[in-house]
Simulated assay, not measured.
Amino acid sequence: MTQLTELERAAIDAILAEKPDYLGPLSEQLQSVVVEKRENTGGGFFTTISVSPLAPAAIVSSPLGLNVYVGVDGMDYGLGMLLFFEHGRMSLLEGYSVGGEDTSAIEFGRVAFAITAAPATSRGNVS
């Protein structure tokens, strides 16, 4: 079990900021997040997460993050971000390639990135 990367944490923070009404229970969940599994799919990534069963559940529609994007060094268009829930608890963070770019060679735990509110039309490098 591991902690969130900087990119994962920044993406979740940006997603939660879109829903200030739920920030209390979701912030409590975020304090107990543990990464169960990571997968670079070649078209983005999946990060499977779990939260403490003692953290309060939130009544939210799943997924959240319909307006959160990440400019990623080495990608022209970057990633869209979605946060999924099961039974009111965070369960999966998805980063999907907005422009269909291959992400196989990107190390998402080390890459330079910037959170944005819209997908890039051609971002290039963010560093």
Rank of each mutant, 00 (worst) to 15 (best):
Q29F: 04
F85G: 02
K37C: 00
K37L: 03
V34C: 08
V68F: 12
Y77Q: 11
I15C: 06
A105W: 04
R110L: 13
M81C: 11
K37D: 08
Y22M: 14
Y96F: 15
M75Y: 03
S91H: 08
I15M: 05
P25A: 09
I49E: 04
T5N: 08
T2N: 14
G95M: 05
Y96N: 09
E8T: 02
Q29P: 07
E18S: 15
P119Y: 13
V35K: 03
D102L: 08
S32P: 07
E101A: 06
S97C: 13
R9W: 05
M1R: 12
E86V: 14
G100S: 11
E94Y: 02
I115C: 07
M1G: 15
S91N: 12
L54T: 09
V33W: 06
L7C: 05
R89H: 10
S61P: 07
E86K: 14
G88H: 05
K19N: 14
M90A: 02
E8D: 12
L4F: 02
S32V: 01
A112V: 01
S50F: 01
E86I: 12
Y22K: 15
G24E: 15
A118M: 11
G24P: 01
T48N: 07
S91P: 00
F85I: 04
A114L: 06
A55M: 02
E8F: 01
A117S: 15
A112F: 04
E28I: 00
L30C: 04
D13W: 01
T103A: 07
T103H: 08
Y96V: 11
S91M: 09
V111I: 12
Y77N: 10
A10V: 07
T5C: 01
L7P: 13
S52H: 05
L7K: 02
G44E: 03
A112K: 11
I59Y: 11
G124M: 11
N67P: 00
Q31D: 13
L16N: 06
R110P: 00
L93C: 10
I115G: 07
V126M: 08
D102T: 07
E28L: 03
G43V: 07
G99V: 00
P25E: 07
L16Q: 05
D13E: 15
L7R: 02
V126Q: 10
P25V: 11
V68L: 10
N125C: 14
A55W: 04
L7M: 04
V51E: 01
T47N: 05
G24A: 14
G71S: 10
R89A: 01
G80Q: 08
G42E: 04
P56L: 05
R89N: 00
G124A: 09
Q31L: 13
P25S: 10
N125A: 14
V60P: 08
V72T: 08
E28K: 04
Y69E: 07
A11K: 03
T103M: 05
D76N: 14
M81L: 10
S97P: 05
T41F: 00
A10F: 10
I115T: 06
L54I: 02
V60R: 15
L54M: 10
F113N: 04
